[in-house]
Each structure stands twice: as structure tokens, then as C-alpha cells.
Write a protein that binds this DNA or RNA. Structure first.
Lengths: 193, 193, 193, 193
DNA sequence: TATGAATGAGGTTTCATTCAT
DNA sequence: TATGAATGAAACCTCATTCAT
């Protein structure tokens, strides 16, 4: 009743560009998606995109910044917690939830690492990954335990991908299973100390 | 010792194209790598590439087919073994070795999933992944155990990526650690039965 | 009087592309004419052509559609007339006039049948020719009379070609002569009934 | 039993190139047919074509020269005959037969006038057409009669094209009908004198 | 009598971007 | 807040042709 009439859409064009762009980026990849396509699917001109964003890259950057804020907040929060096992479990739990709410973007980043790496956000992505690892691992722990931390994170991501391709059953159930396994893995790392 | 003079190079151009192409694909991504670049780095004309390969995609396909043969052999072998825990461990061990020998290609596929998905090899990649999962998981096992199988595989891949980005220490050591963790994870899945 | 200064040309680029394209297509053939040539003769970039038309073929299609409308109208008109000799004569008369006003295009189609056949307009061209024949011939008439109908049409076309190559005298006079002969031929077909 | 084994084919490669080339030229047009296609259909290399012919154009020229000799002979013969109506009828008769035996080539020339015009044979083709017209028309005859001569020739050609597209009935029957009509037309021109 | 390998020129098409309106 | 028109660069690919073997 309120969202799709042309008049009501006034002012939310910027948002709609972001939505459609992410949709296409995730569907076809960043390089394969042209501004023409985005504009066409929106029913506007390419030039209109340039009114709202300075470059193609900036569209992605803006989506990225909007949608990854929760991760930054998670990292900030985690840095103030004690490094207990409970904290680590909570980190994984929150991260898992975040992955769901920004599923398209994370799927996009997973599948377009090469493209993202060349972009200005590449560095940020890498830093954030390292920050996450840093929060999960215990300094001076053996190499296998460090691997376990990364493994736990990747397990959550892997859960999402199974969700994409298998698409059987309840996605939420898959996520819970992945979370359970990830916590299990990190427990191993913690016990070892 | 004698390989780079123009005369000596006769006859191995096809191979050299494959090498340089993979190098660049892995470095910059598939879409971002142009045939001009490949040709220039080789010191030949674009047209020369087209003498040896019908399309850009075919270059990738040929590299892919050459380098993933070990995986096919591994799968074939595994299908004839009993589904014991020992077999599964051996699968992971061999898979881990394969990942090392074809490191560039696997890194490429990891980072260019979006591009690969659209290509004709996309289907093959997906099938192979499912085949691997099928060999590791036990039918009718609980969802968490199925996730563990995928997790074990991704752990090996994650090991490689750490190898890329951290690039500290001995890569071989990192691989061993990842393998150890992966085997550990799969053991959990097996015990549960 | 005022038409060729760059400022004044605004807005008629599409038309100018069509004009120049037809000019070159007729001069050199469809395949031999490159978009570079068209663009150069117009003083714009190749990309500008693609702003106005999706493909090279579409340029031809648009010219074709614009210039053959009279033929469609002629066919539509003829279908509502009684099949008398007078009607047939009138058809030839009008067709002859049409050939003159769209001379470049018809010359082009005559000389580039092979190219046109492969294009999407090929079918349309064929259908139109058959429709014309259908309007001129009498059902169940002997084979020779059917040939005469085609012959009459081709005579008009032949008139145009003589006009091109001989280009002596008054073209209009040649056209009149061709028309006279064509009508004569069709009369033979009609008398025979 | 004798023609297709690789051994027997020795020595007739040149001829086979001509055959396949004409086949493809007629099918797809001169410009659209590449030497690669010709070579592939023959099962030889492009370079092999260059052993037998200096250029692509020369392949066409050689086919043209071989197959249009009858026309030259016809013209030579006709020039020594008296300019009676009987002679003209005989010319048309012989021309009609020639069109059949060289059908592919004449179809090709009809459909590729634009391409042929740019080639070195273009001039020859035009000269031969004018020579034919010269033999049929009577000097100082009225314009309509001159048109009739061209019309008669085009009628024979038109007969061939109907043969292509309608492809119903007996082609030979169509040819006879076209010949009959053509003779009829030329008779008109003659009577008028 | 052919082939394998390569080239240089050029083809059509697409892209991100700009700017006057 | 957008559009219409255009550009420059570059993409993938094909072609006729050459030449050493």
C-alpha cells in the first residue's frame, strides 16, 4: 500500500539503487554486472546512478558500509569482554546471526573475493577477518588451535553456502547446526590450553 | 637453463599460455584479466592465443581439466574403498596434498566463484564438491555431522588461504595443522554414530 | 540552409545515422561497411551509434522498416480491390513509383540478397515478394502465366538497374518504359484466361 | 566406389576446393564465408588452400572462369549469326541451359552482386551482361524494346529463383515456362520494328 | 603436397563515465 | 532529481595471409 507507487518512491531512489545493485552483484558477480543493467532493472537512466553515486565502486562501498556495521559493532563489543570461552561462544553466535541478516552481501563477498581484493574495501575486509581471528584465538596457542579458530569461522560461512545449494529443509536449522559445530571446534581449541 | 630463448620455445607455446593465464587469473581474477595482457606477457599476439584455444573460457577449461584430474582420481579411488574412518582420513590426507600441488588453481576457484559459476566448468566444480561431501558423510547421520564433513573440507581450504595471507612460517607446517584439525572434525562426526 | 553546423544537428543524429548507413550499405555492401566508416563519415564515435541502435543489424532494420512501409500499404490496399486487370496495372504503377522513392534501399536489397537472407528481415522480404506475386497472378492459371507475374515485377527492378548502370538519358523515361513493358507482360497473363 | 577414398583423391584437391568454396559462397555469401570454413569442410588446413590459390578472391575467379566459359562461347557464336528473331530465340534457349548447368554460380552472382562488383570479376560480369543485351536488342529501337531485352534475360534468371524458393513441381518445367515467356517478350520487341 | 604456428589489421560490441540541460 | 547524448578505452574475437618445415 505504501512502497511501490512512483510518487511514494520519491527520495528512496538511493536505497533502491543499493538494493538492486547488491541483488545483481550477488547474482552475477561484480564485474559482470553493468550499470546499464542496474539502471534498466530500476527503470532509470545510467546517469541517474551518477547523481547518487560517484562511481560503480562507490555503490558497492556504500552497501558494504551499511551492511557490515554490525560486524564492526560486534568486534568493538568483543574487545571489551574478557577472553573466556563464553565470550567466544557469544561471538560466534552473534556472527552467525549477522551472516544471516546480511546474507546477500556475504555471499557476494565470498564469491567475489578476487574482485573485492582489488577494490578499496579489500583491505577492510581482510582487516576485519584478522580482527575476528584475533578475538577467537589465544595468543601463543599452538598452530592447530589457531587453525581451529579460522575453521570455526569458515564453518559458519560454509553453513550459508550449503543453505544456498542444498536449499532443502529449514535454513534456520542448517544455521543452528553450523553454529553448534563451530562452537564445538572452538571448544577444542580452548580445552587444549 | 635454456628455456626462454625464442627458438627453444617452439612447441611449448600452448603450455606457456596455460601457465601465464593461470598466473594472471589467480592474480587479478578471471574477468579482470584480458587476453591482451596474457599475450603481452608472453610476447605473442592475441591472435596466437586463438590459434591454440578457441575462446578465453577454453583456456581456463583446459587448465582446469589438466589440474583437477587428481581430484577425479581421488574420487574414483574413494568410491571403491570401505566407508571406514580410516578411509575418510586418507581421503582428507590426499585431498590436502592435491590442494598444494594445484594451489594456484584452487586459490583461483576460491576467489572467483562468481565467475566460475557462470562458466561451463561451474557445474563440474559443484558436482565434485558434492561428490567429496558424499564420500565423507554417512547417510542418515544427523545434520550436524553432515555440516562437519563440509567443515572438514573447508578447513583444508582455509589452511591454504592462511598460507596465502599470513605467509609466515613454513607453509607445509600450516598444511599439516589444517589436516590435523580436519581429521579431528571428521572424527567427531564418525564417533557420533 | 542551416543544417550542418554541429549545434543545429542536435536531435537528428539518429536520422543521420540511418542516411549515412544506407548510403554506405548501398555503395559497398552490408558486410563490407564497417561501423567505423559510418561513424567517421558522421563525425561521431562508434559508441554513439550504439547509443541509438543496439546492433549493426538494427540500423538496417530500422531503415528497412521506415522505407518499406509504402509497400505494406500497397499490399494492404491491393488486397481489398477486385482482381481485375485494371487493379493489377495499378499495382504495378504504384510499385514502380515506390521503387523510385526508395531506390537506394531497393538497390541495396537487390545487390545484397545473400546478406539480407541471413538477417532477420530476410523472411519479411521473401514474404512480401510472395504477397506481391499472389496479388498479380490468378489462381489455377498455367505455369507460364505465373512466371509472367514474377517477370513483370522483375522487369520493374531491371528498369532500376539499367537506370543505375546506363544512367544515360532521363531516368524517369526509363522507368516509364519499364512500367509499360511490365504492364504488357501482365496483360498477356490475363488474356490467356 | 571410386571417388571418396583419401588415396583416390590425390590430385583433385584443387577441384574439391573449388566445389566446396562455391557451395559455401552460394549458401552464405562471399564475405560471410571464411577460408577456415572451406578448409574445415574439406578436412585440410587453411595453408593448403594457399598452396593451390594465391588469395580468396582467386578461388572465386577460378570457379568463375571455369563455369562461365559457356557464356563466352555463346556470345562468340552469337556474334557470327545474323540478327534474326530465330537467332535471338536460340540465344535465349542456350542461355537458359547454361543457367541450369551453372546454377550455383549464377545464384551466387545474383545474390552477391555487391561483393562481386568490388572484385576483379565485377567488370567482366557487367561486360558480359551488356554483350548479351547488345545481341538481343536492335540498334535504334525504341526504349521499351531495349527494356524488353533486359526483361527477357531477367525472366530467365527469375525462373531460376522461383526454382529455388518455390521448389515445388519439376524444376525443368519451370525453366521451360520461363524460357517460353522470355521468348514471348523478345518477340514483342522484334515485331515492333 | 601440405601443415603448424603465427601475425596485423580490423570487426562488433560493451563499459564506466561525463556534461549540458 | 534526473535525462539524453556522447565519448574513449578496451574487451573478445575473426580474418586473410605468410612462411619455415
Amino acid at each position: 500500500m505504501s512502497s511501490s507507487s512512483p510518487q511514494q518512491r520519491r527520495g528512496d531512489t538511493r536505497q533502491r539503487i543499493q538494493d538492486v545493485a547488491l541483488e545483481l552483484f550477488a547474482e552475477q558477480g561484480y564485474e559482470k554486472t553493468s550499470l546499464r543493467e542496474i539502471a534498466e532493472r530500476l527503470g532509470v537512466t545510467k546517469a541517474a546512478l551518477y547523481y547518487h553515486f560517484k562511481t560503480k565502486e562507490e555503490i558497492l562501498i556504500s552497501v558494504f558500509n551499511d551492511q557490515t556495521r554490525p560486524i564492526d559493532e560486534l568486534i568493538a563489543w568483543a574487545r571489551e569482554q574478557p577472553r573466556t570461552l563464553e565470550t567466544k561462544e557469544e561471538i560466534l553466535r552473534r556472527y552467525s546471526e549477522t551472516l544471516v541478516s546480511g546474507a546477500s552481501l556475504y555471499r557476494f563477498m565470498q564469491e567475489n573475493q578476487a574482485a573485492v581484493r582489488e577494490l578499496s574495501i579489500g583491505e577492510t575486509v581482510k582487516n576485519r577477518l584478522f580482527a575476528m581471528v584475533e578475538l577467537l584465538r589465544t595468543a601463543d596457542s599452538p598452530l592447530t588451535d589457531q587453525v581451529r579458530c579460522v575453521s570455526a569461522l569458515f564453518t559458519l560461512h560454509a553453513g550459508m553456502m550449503f543453505l544456498q545449494h542444498v536449499e532443502a529443509d529449514d535454513p534456520e536449522q542448517t544455521r543452528q547446526a553450523a553454529l553448534e559445530v563451530a562452537i564445538d571446534i572452538i571448544k577444542q581449541a580452548h580445552h587444549a590450553e
